[in-house]
Design a protein around this nucleic acid. Structure first.
Length: 297
DNA sequence: AAACGACTCAACCGCCGTTAT
DNA sequence: AATAACGGCGGTTGAGTCGTT
C-alpha cells in the first residue's frame, strides 16, 4: 500500500462538514488562498483549518469566492449568444465555455443552459407560457467578451459526438435536435416551435402564406432552426404577427433582427400564438451551412 | 392569504485524467 | 509499473425565492 503523499499529517481529521458555507468558513478559505494561492485544497482539511473536503473548498472558491465573479445578474444578450455559439461548437463543455465569459463559472453556464433547456422544453408543451420579470442583466460589452474561436480552431472538438449542430440539418427533426443539444434528460419535443408568417387564420385574405419558420434559437447563426412547408400542413398554421423581432421583407420572407434579443425578451403575446401542429418537413431555402468536419476532409 | 408552479443557484456526487509515491 | 490521492469536470438535486392563480 502506498504511503500518503507528503504534506498529509497524521492524526484524526474532523468529520466532513457538508451543506451551505458559513461566513467564517469563507474567511478561513479566503485566508488560505491568500497565503497559498488557489491550490492545496486538501491541506485545508488535513491541517484542520476546515472540516471540508478539498473538492468542496475548491468548488466554493471557484464558484463563489473568486474576486472576479459576476454575481446576482442574469446573462446578458451577448453572454447568451456566446454560450449558444460555444455550446454548438464544443457541446456541454461548460468549463471550456466559461473561459470565454469573464466572471462566469462553469456552474453558471451549466445552470443557465439547464434553465434554458427546461424553459424551451416546457414552451414546446405548454400553449401559454408566462414570463417572469428577470433580474437586470450585467450587459457584457463585446470588448469584454473573449473572442470566439473560429471554425477552423474548433474542428477537432466538434465531432466528439456531443453536439449534432454541425450536421447537415435539412429536416425539421434534425434541426430540432440541433436546437436542443444536451437535453438528454428531456423527452424529445413533439415538434419544434413553429412560426408562420402570412395572413391570419380565418382571415379573408387570399394571399397564400409564403413561408413558415421555426424560432431562430439556433444560436450561432441566427438562422431559422427549421422550416416547414405551409402547403403541406394538414392543419392551419398559426400567425405570429410582425413585430419588433420579425417582419416580412420584400420577398415575403421572414425578416429577422435577433441581434441582442434574448429568449426572455420575446414578448409573451407572441409566444401565446404558438401551436404544435404535426407537419412534415420540406425543403426550404436555408442559408448555407458552415462545412462540417467531414466535409473538410 | 395560501397553494402551486417556475425559476435560480449552491452544492454534492461520480467519473476520469493527472500526479506523486 | 502499480497504486492512491488529488484536482477538474459534467450531471444532478434540493432549498429558497418569486410570481401567478
Amino acid at each position: 500500500m502506498m504511503k500518503p503523499r507528503g504534506g498529509r499529517g497524521g492524526g484524526e481529521q474532523p468529520a466532513v462538514r457538508k451543506g451551505p458555507w458559513a461566513a467564517e468558513e469563507d474567511e478561513v478559505l479566503l485566508r488560505h488562498v491568500q497565503e497559498h494561492g488557489p491550490r492545496e485544497w486538501s491541506s485545508i482539511r488535513s491541517k484542520g483549518l476546515l472540516p471540508r473536503t478539498g473538492k468542496s473548498c475548491r468548488l466554493r472558491w471557484v464558484n463563489k469566492l473568486r474576486p472576479d465573479l459576476k454575481t446576482g445578474c442574469k446573462f446578458s444578450a451577448e453572454e447568451e449568444r456566446v454560450v449558444l455559439d460555444l455550446q454548438a461548437q464544443f457541446g456541454n463543455k461548460w468549463a471550456r465555455i466559461a473561459t470565454y465569459l469573464p466572471g462566469r463559472t462553469d456552474n453558471d453556464v451549466k445552470n443557465f443552459w439547464s434553465t434554458r433547456q427546461k424553459r424551451l422544453a416546457r414552451l414546446l408543451r405548454s400553449p401559454l407560457p408566462r414570463r417572469r420579470p428577470g433580474k437586470q442583466s450585467c450587459g457584457v460589452s463585446s470588448s469584454h467578451a473573449h473572442e470566439l474561436p473560429t471554425q477552423k480552431e474548433t474542428t477537432t472538438t466538434q465531432n466528439n459526438g456531443e453536439s449534432s449542430s454541425r450536421q447537415d440539418p435539412r429536416t425539421v427533426n434534425q434541426r430540432a435536435d440541433a436546437a436542443f443539444p444536451g437535453a438528454h434528460g428531456l423527452p424529445p419535443p413533439p415538434i419544434p416551435l413553429l412560426m408562420h408568417v402570412g395572413p391570419e387564420r380565418g382571415s379573408s385574405s387570399a394571399t397564400p402564406p409564403p413561408t413558415a419558420l421555426l424560432l431562430p434559437f439556433g444560436g450561432d447563426t441566427g438562422h431559422p432552426v427549421a422550416a416547414v412547408d405551409p402547403a403541406a400542413s394538414p392543419e392551419p398554421l398559426t400567425v405570429v404577427p410582425p413585430g419588433p423581432f420579425f417582419g416580412l421583407d420584400d420577398d415575403d420572407h421572414v425578416h429577422q433582427d435577433m441581434s441582442g434579443v434574448r429568449f426572455d425578451d420575446l414578448p409573451a403575446e407572441m409566444l401565446d400564438f404558438f401551436e404544435l401542429p404535426h407537419l412534415p418537413a420540406s425543403p426550404f431555402p436555408f442559408p448555407p451551412l458552415p462545412p462540417s468536419p467531414s466535409d473538410l476532409l
